[in-house]
Computed example of a mutant assay.
Amino acid sequence: MLFVLFQVLVLNNVEPGLGLYIMIYPLFIFMLPFQMGTVPLMLLSFAFGLVIDSFSNTFGLHASSAVVMAFFRPLIFKWLSPRDGYENIESISVYSMGGRWFLFAYGTLLLIHHTWFFSIESFKLNEFLWVLLKIGLSVPSSFLLSLLVQFIFISNKKAVR
């Protein structure tokens, strides 16, 4: 609920220019439990995206981007899986998984999410460079905000249990 409120009430109203659009809600999808199956994950992501779409008047853009991210999440997690697997990990965070894993996993998923979002938003080949600029500015900004949120709201002791 806090992700939706922050995205809709704060981030959607911030317009720094140059096509920069900061999104925090992909972090919610990323932090869902490892054990969640792909279909429930995609359904939950779709519903979550629809809620954001209803406040943003984006007509399914966030929902489709969230579903694409949810589809690739198990594949990325399997690709970056530790040798011993994920059994002993209660929650997904930068503390529990480590900075390098978080950078590659969340960075890749955020890149997929934003690429889909801005490509579908534009839907014109003649705006390819504009889409690349939006992706290039928005992915690092969204990633840094997601890191900041984790450092502020998730304690290191709680994540390591």
Rank of each mutant, 00 (worst) to 15 (best):
S141G: 10
S138Q: 11
F128Y: 14
F151E: 05
F118C: 06
F123C: 01
F123K: 00
I154S: 03
S155C: 01
L144S: 08
S146W: 03
N156M: 13
F128Q: 08
L125N: 02
S141L: 14
L132W: 05
L148I: 10
L148N: 05
F118L: 10
E121Q: 07
I154R: 00
N156P: 00
F128E: 12
I120N: 10
G136K: 01
E121W: 03
L133N: 07
L148G: 09
P140C: 09
L145T: 01
F128L: 15
S142Y: 05
L148K: 04
S138N: 09
G136V: 12
I135G: 02
L133S: 13
L148H: 05
G136P: 01
S119W: 07
S119P: 00
V131F: 02
S138K: 06
L144T: 01
V149L: 15
S138L: 14
S119E: 03
F128A: 15
K124D: 08
I152Y: 11
W130F: 14
L145I: 15
G136F: 09
I152C: 15
V131W: 03
Q150F: 02
V139C: 05
S146H: 02
Q150S: 08
L133C: 08
L132F: 14
L147H: 07
P140L: 06
F153S: 07
L144Q: 06
L129R: 04
L125Y: 11
S155Y: 05
L133Y: 09
S146Y: 00
F151W: 11
K124F: 12
F118G: 09
S119L: 15
V149M: 10
F143G: 01
F151C: 00
K124N: 10
L147P: 00
F123A: 14
L125D: 02
E121T: 13
L137D: 02
L125W: 10
N126Y: 10
K124C: 11
L145A: 04
N156T: 13
L137S: 05
L133V: 14
I154L: 08
N126L: 11
E127Q: 12
S119G: 14
K134N: 15
F153R: 01
L137W: 13
I152M: 10
Q150L: 01
S141D: 10
F123D: 06
S142Q: 07
E127T: 15
Q150A: 00
S141R: 04
L125I: 09
F123P: 00
P140F: 04
L147S: 02
Q150T: 01
V149K: 04
S146P: 04
V149E: 04
N156L: 14
I135T: 04
Q150P: 04
I120Y: 08
L132A: 13
E127H: 09
S141C: 12
N126M: 09
L137I: 06
F118S: 08
E121D: 13
K134D: 15
L147T: 05
L147D: 03
F123M: 04
S138R: 10
F143S: 04
F128V: 15
L148Q: 01
I152E: 14
V149W: 11
F151I: 00
G136A: 13
F151L: 08
L132C: 11
L147W: 02
F153E: 00
S155V: 03
L144W: 07
I154E: 06
L148V: 12
L144P: 14
L125E: 07
S122I: 13
F153M: 06
K124L: 09
S141P: 15
F143I: 06
L129C: 02
S146M: 08
L145K: 03
Q150N: 08
L132Q: 07
L145H: 05
